[in-house]
Write a protein that binds this DNA or RNA. Structure first.
Length: 419
RNA sequence: GCGGGGAUGGCCCAGGUGGUAAGGCGACAGCCUGCUAAGCUGUUGGCGCUACGCGCCGCGUGGGUUCAAAUCCCACUCCCCGCGCCA
């Protein structure tokens, strides 16, 4: 949620941001119009309420005909107020509805662009391993090594599901253990959160109403399957007031993630790269407003560390205006090099949401000078397990069809090779 | 699922026979003292406006009764404690 005060005082800032996102500006004009009407109506009501209160107070000390008269008059005023209050309520609802649909204001450093192609590469790390053979993609490698069963998953659950098997299972647990090793050193509190949350948690983190079609819902209950641990980690401190002393707060949550992948028809239909259910470790930070931009850079560095440790080449892109989620004011993606596909593919998404989620979730802190303000929130993938398995298989494949285990994982895996 | 208890400002907690939120703690500011502590004073929910002021709203949520509701009535939500069931 952006601050209504910002819309009142500097609507041009919001307008520019909407333009940059290639979104309709009409919503902004409507918010302004409705807000003006709301304020006028509220002022009217306040005056009427004042009259009523004065009369009601006087009645206590009146008697007889005077009292009767006053009661009658007050009743009239009350009826008038009730009518106006209905108008006010409707305006308020309309304003909230609209305001909840205005995306976050972009930071100035976000590059303008219309598609992924306009993302700006800001860094490249590592070099692809030399291969004196034609690299295979993860599907071929994995099927040959019996690491997953996609056909039976399709039979049981449908397209975009998988059974992970054999060493792939060990690899997953090794990755998880590896990640939490690093995360604890970096001061993140390990968490396993609920993967079913109320709608309010999804709304608060900005996945509703913007990502409605991507969410699985539980029938007849106010519960949804989360698409990322960002939801329960962000909502964890909703309606709380933290102390500036405990900021920044860092959490790392392991969770299964569920996504309908609506609108992704035809994209990455094979394998385990884009699926309805996968496991992921997500980092989440709550911090002081003045520190969120530097914390964002730090968070990116932490995310990079996982791939550096695995010795997987990657690049970092600054995601362009059109591709940013509603909550994010700025976002970096890490894309790992996938030799089998001959391209860089997204494995990490690292966002700064400023106070956008904090406003929706009512997460505040008491500052050193005693003021209560909204915190800033940031989130980033640490390890998206299945995608990282894809990257490992493609980068560590060998001529004979086997795949090496990255050195950093060997202690957790108990073996050096998958064959 | 059944029974009982509870929800009030940053936190704790009063009010409960309807008349318009008391007190404590903490925090912040000021005063006082050579410094610290103590002490004293003030501030410390949200919103609107023709803004050193005026007013409105606010006691879990939504309705109702009333001139007037934290207080009475109805429904709901969440939390806690027992019991039952259960991985």
């Amino acid at each position: 949620m952006i601050d209504i005060e910002l819309i009142r005082k500097a609507p041009e800032v919001v307008r520019e941001s909407l333009k940059k996102r290639n979104m309709e500006e009409r919503i902004l004009d409507e918010v302004i119009a409705v807000d003006n009407e709301w304020r006028r109506t509220l002022t009217d009501i306040n005056l009427m309420r004042k009259d009523r209160n004065e009369l009601a107070r006087a009645i206590a000390s009146l008697a007889g005909e005077e009292r009767e008269k006053a009661i009658l008059h007050t009743r009239e005023i009350s009826n008038g107020i009730a009518r106006k209050e209905e108008e006010l309520k409707a305006l308020e609802e309309r304003r909230s509805y609209l305001l909840a649909r205005v995306p976050n204001v972009l930071l100035p450093s976000v590059p303008y662009g219309r598609s992924d192609d306009d993302n700006v590469e800001v860094k490249r790390w590592g070099t692809a391993r030399a291969m004196d053979f034609e690299p295979k993609d993860h599907v071929d490698i994995g099927l040959a090594l019996d690491l997953f069963d996609l056909e039976r998953a399709a039979k049981v659950s449908g397209a975009r599901f998988f059974y992970l098997k054999n060493d792939a299972v060990l690899l997953e647990f090794a990755l998880v253990r590896y990640a939490f090793d690093i995360l604890q050193r970096e001061g993140f509190v390990p968490i396993i959160p609920p993967v079913l949350t109320r709608e309010s948690a999804l709304f608060g983190t900005g996945f509703l109403p913007f990502g409605e079609e991507n969410i699985y819902r539980i029938k007849d209950e106010d519960l949804c399957l989360v698409g990322t641990a960002e939801v329960p980690l962000g909502a964890m401190h909703s309606n709380e007031i933290l102390s500036y002393k405990e900021l920044p707060k860092r959490y790392a949550g392991f969770s299964t993630c569920f996504r309908t992948e609506a609108g992704a028809h035809g994209k990455d239909t094979k394998g385990i790269f884009r699926v309805h259910q996968f496991d992921k470790i997500e980092m989440f930070k709550y911090c002081l407003p003045e520190e969120s931009e530097s914390e964002h850079e730090k968070l990116l560095q932490t995310a990079e560390r996982f791939y550096q440790g695995l010795e997987i080449p990657y690049r970092v892109v600054s995601v362009c205006s059109n591709e940013l989620g509603a909550s994010a004011a700025k976002k970096y993606d890490i894309e790992a090099f996938m030799p089998g596909q001959g391209m860089y593919r997204e494995v990490v998404s690292c966002s700064n949401c400023l106070d956008y989620q904090a406003r929706r979730l009512m997460i505040r802190y008491r500052s050193k000078d005693g003021e209560i303000r909204y915190v800033h929130t940031l989130n980033s993938t640490a390890i998206a397990v299945e995608r990282t398995i894809v990257a490992i298989l493609e980068n560590y494949q060998q001529k004979d069809g086997s795949a090496l285990v990255p050195e950093a994982l060997q202690p957790f895996m108990g073996k050096e090779m998958i064959k």
